[in-house]
Simulated assay, not measured.
Amino acid sequence: MRVQEVLTRFQNPFRIFFGAGFIVAGLYHFINPDFYYPMMPGWFPAPSALNLAAGAAEVVLGAGLLMSKYARLASYGIIGLMVLFIPAHVYMIQVGGCVSEAVCLPLWAAWVRLVVLHPLIILAAWWAGRSGDG
């Protein structure tokens, strides 16, 4: 079996898993909003409203990813959302990786999160959105 065939076989299940993950992550914004506030730079306006908007966007985009018809559009939305989250990742680096007792990473891990994991999430969103093309 060729690599392309293997990737294609796992693309649709990955899209469902990835979409469900975004729904869960989005719901956590509502369940534990205090977890997210310390990650927001001080210059962000209305942290509570931004947290709720981010959570709602993650839920809606995750649900969109679950529906083949909307998967590509949802993937673009997730990519845009990830770009909007970059200032929070940079802020984590600026403060040395620790923004609260609940969210404290070694500085190297904050860098890996920004320059490796975040781009991988963007790539995964792009790839997952392609499985809806049928």
Rank of each mutant, 00 (worst) to 15 (best):
S68A: 14
Y76F: 14
I122S: 12
V6P: 02
P45A: 07
L52C: 07
G134T: 08
A102P: 07
I93A: 02
T8A: 10
A54G: 14
V95A: 09
G55N: 09
A49S: 05
A49F: 07
W108A: 11
H89D: 12
L120Q: 10
A20L: 12
S131V: 08
L117T: 13
M82H: 04
V115T: 02
K69R: 12
M82L: 14
P119Q: 01
A125D: 13
G134P: 01
R72G: 09
P38S: 01
H89T: 02
M92H: 00
S48T: 10
G55L: 13
D34L: 03
E58W: 08
P13Q: 05
L7E: 03
E5M: 05
I31L: 06
I93D: 01
I86Y: 05
L61F: 10
H29L: 14
A25G: 12
L120R: 09
N32C: 13
G19Q: 11
L65M: 15
N12H: 09
Q94N: 05
A110R: 06
E101Q: 10
V59K: 13
A88V: 06
S100L: 00
G64R: 03
G26I: 10
F22Q: 03
G64S: 04
A102D: 08
A46C: 07
V116Q: 09
F35L: 15
R72H: 07
K69C: 06
I78Q: 04
W126A: 15
P87W: 02
V112M: 15
I31V: 00
N32E: 15
C104R: 03
L120V: 15
A25Q: 08
I31H: 03
V115K: 01
H89P: 00
F44V: 15
D133F: 12
N12S: 13
P33Y: 13
L84R: 01
D133K: 12
W111S: 01
R72W: 14
L123N: 01
P38C: 00
L123H: 04
L27G: 01
C98L: 02
A74Q: 09
N32Q: 14
L107V: 10
N12K: 06
G55M: 03
G21I: 11
N12P: 04
G132H: 10
V60Y: 00
I86A: 02
Y70R: 05
A20S: 12
G42Q: 14
G134F: 05
S75K: 06
G134E: 10
L27M: 05
P41N: 05
L52P: 02
P41A: 08
V59M: 15
L120N: 09
M40G: 04
G77I: 13
F85C: 04
Y91F: 11
N12F: 07
Y91H: 15
G42C: 01
G19R: 09
Y91D: 07
P45S: 13
F14K: 03
G132E: 07
P87K: 04
I121W: 11
H89V: 04
V83M: 06
V3R: 07
L107Q: 01
I122L: 14
